Simulated assay, not measured.
Amino acid sequence: MTMAAVTQQMSSLPSGLRICTTAPDILYLPELVFGGLVWILVASTYVTPINPQGWVMFVSVFCFVMTFLWLIIFAFGAHKNSSAWATADFIYHLIAVTFYLSASVILANVTIGWESFTSVQLVFKYYQIDIAAVVFSFIATLLYFIHCILSAARWKSF
């Protein structure tokens, strides 16, 4: 693929099945998968009143729903290939990166805090679930970060 083809591809917003073949839009599906895994794992763990996992749940649900809506908008071509949508795409992914990074750090801190509990069997089960949620949360953060960088490049090329 020539540099001109890549530049032309980055300067237009895809619609239909092209979202499954163009960067950064190909990242929608992994973002949904890893965000959904974070949502499921955090929902299945033990939550105490002093535990800040409510923010983690908000971030994972918010980003999952918004990414799904964004995917639908792009898939059905409702964006009309305008620069305003490219700007909105960049801004949304910047917000998602910020939210997910904060949620990932909070979730990692909560997971480290499991050491203070005395019930070993109960703690080990929830500790394993939280470790998986932390890993998937940081993967989701990385995916949103890459999407944000590529969206910024596309926005600048408009």
Rank of each mutant, 00 (worst) to 15 (best):
S151M: 03
F117D: 01
V120K: 06
A140Q: 07
C148P: 01
I112P: 15
H147P: 00
Q128Y: 13
A153H: 13
S137D: 04
S119L: 14
T141A: 02
V120H: 08
Q121F: 08
Q128P: 12
W155Q: 06
W155I: 06
I149L: 07
I131Y: 07
V110G: 04
V135N: 04
S137T: 00
F138D: 08
S119M: 14
T111D: 06
D130A: 14
V123N: 12
V120L: 12
I131G: 04
W114F: 14
A152H: 11
Q121V: 15
E115F: 13
T118Q: 12
Y144F: 09
A132Q: 07
D130G: 10
K125E: 05
A152S: 11
F138S: 01
Q121H: 13
T141C: 02
K125R: 14
S151A: 10
W155N: 09
F145N: 02
L122Q: 12
S119P: 12
L142P: 14
F117S: 04
A132K: 03
R154Y: 09
I112L: 15
T118S: 13
F124H: 15
A108F: 04
S151P: 03
T141S: 07
V123E: 12
S137C: 01
S119Q: 14
L143Y: 00
F138Q: 03
V123Y: 08
Y144I: 00
I129A: 02
H147I: 05
F117G: 01
Y144A: 08
Q121P: 13
W114S: 14
G113L: 03
F124C: 15
F117Q: 02
A153C: 13
L150V: 04
C148V: 08
S116E: 10
F136L: 02
W155M: 11
S119K: 14
L142F: 10
A132S: 08
V110C: 09
A140C: 11
E115Y: 14
I131Q: 10
F136E: 05
T118I: 09
L107N: 03
I146D: 01
S116C: 11
W114K: 10
V120F: 10
L143F: 02
A108R: 00
T141L: 08
I139Y: 03
I112T: 15
S151G: 00
I131L: 11
S137R: 02
L122E: 10
W114R: 13
L150Q: 05
N109R: 14
Q128F: 10
V134R: 01
A152T: 09
V135F: 03
I131V: 15
K125N: 06
